[in-house]
């Protein structure tokens, strides 16, 4: 069953001589429970695509449907609330609020929803991601990998329908990277979630169910020879 669909999605910046076509007409369909990887070189438009898929950046043209709903057809408030409950985000950087500790960062979306925190569930996720012992630490006391794992935990905590991750292993060494992606797969299967992950690491991309390649704002399917 289709959980996410994009239709002729475009994002253009600037005008005239300075016109940049970050995303230039993307039609994409993601099935429920799928683990999809999006690969492409820098400047290919993958991050912009991901942002639009998650309702963070409004498209210049085109539509995005999640669970059958046109997410850009509603007002900002509704979209925000929708995002809070249905979409989990992991960014490449700037994931965490520096003045809050790990636990507070993870439970932030729930707090915004003014709901009570299901302590057990959160602890479970934290243990799965191996950051439970850092519960009270501040972000600047964590390593890059630990910060990333905290961000992932936050993405999972609201049990979203879909998790969008932008280079979640960006700052990690190869061994940890593999572990994290495995964890993601594991959680996704366990909680019946869908995950779309951006990566430029071929090895990690191959761990997904499907690889979507993008170049200069358009979907392609090309391989590349590594060095």
């Amino acid at each position: 069953m289709e959980i996410l669909k994009t239709e002729a999605l475009k994002k253009y910046y600037g005008k005239g001589v300075n016109l940049v076509k970050a995303v230039d007409g993307v039609d994409l369909s993601i099935a429920e429970g799928e683990f999809a990887a999006i690969a492409g070189s820098s400047g290919s438009g993958k991050t912009t695509l991901l942002h639009m898929m998650g309702g963070l950046d409004s498209p210049t043209e085109g539509k995005v449907y999640i669970d059958g709903r046109d997410i850009y057809a509603v007002n900002d408030e509704s979209l925000t609330i929708f995002r809070r409950r249905k979409v989990g985000f992991v960014f490449q950087s700037y994931n965490l609020i520096p003045v809050l500790n790990v636990w507070e960062n993870i439970t932030m979306p729930i707090q915004f929803d003014l709901k009570r925190v299901d302590q057990e569930f959160v602890e479970e996720i934290m243990r799965t991601l191996n950051i439970f012992d850092k519960k009270n630490a501040l972000p600047n006391q964590l390593s890059g990998g630990q910060q990333q794992r905290t961000a992932i935990a936050r993405a999972l905590v609201t049990r979203p329908s879909i998790v969008l991750a932008d280079e979640p292993t960006g700052n990690l060494d190869s061994k940890t990277s593999q572990e994290v992606v495995n964890l993601l797969r594991h959680s996704v299967k366990k909680y019946h979630q869908t995950i779309v992950m951006i990566t430029h690491d071929e090895n990690l991309a191959r761990m997904a169910d499907r690889i979507v390649r993008i170049e200069d704002g358009k979907l392609v399917n090309k391989g590349g020879a590594p060095c």
């Binding site: 998650g54 963070l56 925000t80 809070r84 960014f91 700037y94 915004f112």
Partner: peptide
């Protein structure tokens, strides 16, 4: 960031 994660305006 907070807004991305679901904080309303």
């Amino acid at each position: 960031m907070m807004r991305a994660v679901g904080g309303t305006r």
